[in-house]
Design a binder for these strands. Structure first.
Lengths: 157, 157
DNA sequence: ATGCGATTGTTATGTTGTATCATCGGGCCA
DNA sequence: TGGCCCGATGATACAACATAACAATCGCAT
């Protein structure tokens, strides 16, 4: 799938379909189980380019899956994160579909405080700067969280 | 006050005293009220170089202040953040004393997953990389969160 | 058929954070 | 001096986010 700015208009249906197809291919290749439940949760997270809370996922999931409870959702989210199919946005306690599933990475995010749209970027220079900063402090970096909030291009007056 | 690696041994008593003195000076200068309650909360947050949860602050505060309730603590934490005296570590839902109080900045943090010690760094190159990444996406950055978790120098075998 | 591991169901609870209204206390001014 | 305003704190309740612990189910290899 191709990276795409969250704010650009696009056929989001295709966007979701791409994500699901990529997910199915990846899990098949890895021998992990993208069950119908997990796929449904992935689809719900992908409904928009805005991070979605676990309980919003639960509400949506419950429409078609009455047995859904918080652990149902959190387990699915955990699986999807472990497979690199979604990211957690720590500053929002919310989850977002990953645009580069398959290429292991820790995401870098631009979060619009006005419209909520959140764009995942992959910036090698930023990545290098993060590594360098850690190295200078003799720190072994494992997970690198970058969440920049502000105004997206569409929301700047 | 001088920046200091979280893992280095030092006279932490002096470390706290410095932080409190700086805080008092800053609030005095700004005409904001560092009340006894707020100062006590700041002191509790500074008890170590590990981020501390709001409810841990509450437990500690309640020892000397029986009326303490969650809003008591959250209001104090909000004030201290607004004054730039503490930071919130989003990935831990916890709070940490700021080592550069007075110089407005969004912190960058190295969080040891083994010992919990968290070092605040101020890295101009990283700052530049963050700005550049946002600019490339035509994004107006306001708050920049960087939280790197891994192993600190002392915890690397 | 049986036992094993992975997935999901189910109930309960733990953790983090806010909304709302009441009360207190100091400064200000008529 | 008395009343008023406002920022800080008290107090109660609740909302939002997340996990513990155990039961049930199901495919599959032995």
């Amino acid at each position: 799938m191709t990276a795409r700015a969250a704010h650009t208009s696009h056929n989001h249906r295709a966007c979701i379909d791409d994500a699901l197809a990529t997910a199915r291919a990846l899990c098949d290749e890895r021998g992990t189980q993208l069950t119908p439940l997990r796929e449904k949760v992935l689809q719900i997270v992908w409904k928009s380019h805005k991070p979605v809370g676990a309980y919003d996922v639960l509400d949506e999931l419950a429409r078609s899956h009455k047995a859904a409870r918080p652990p149902t959702v959190y387990r699915a989210l955990d699986f999807l994160m472990a497979e690199g199919l979604i990211h957690k946005i720590e500053s929002l306690n919310a989850y977002l579909g990953c645009i580069e599933a398959g290429a292991p990475h820790t995401g870098q995010f631009l979060i619009c405080r006005n419209c909520g749209a959140t764009e995942e970027i992959v910036d090698p220079k930023l990545e290098t700067a993060l590594e360098a900063a850690a190295a200078r402090a003799h720190f072994k970096a494992e997970r690198k969280i970058v969440e920049i909030s502000g105004l997206c291009a569409r929301c700047i007056v």
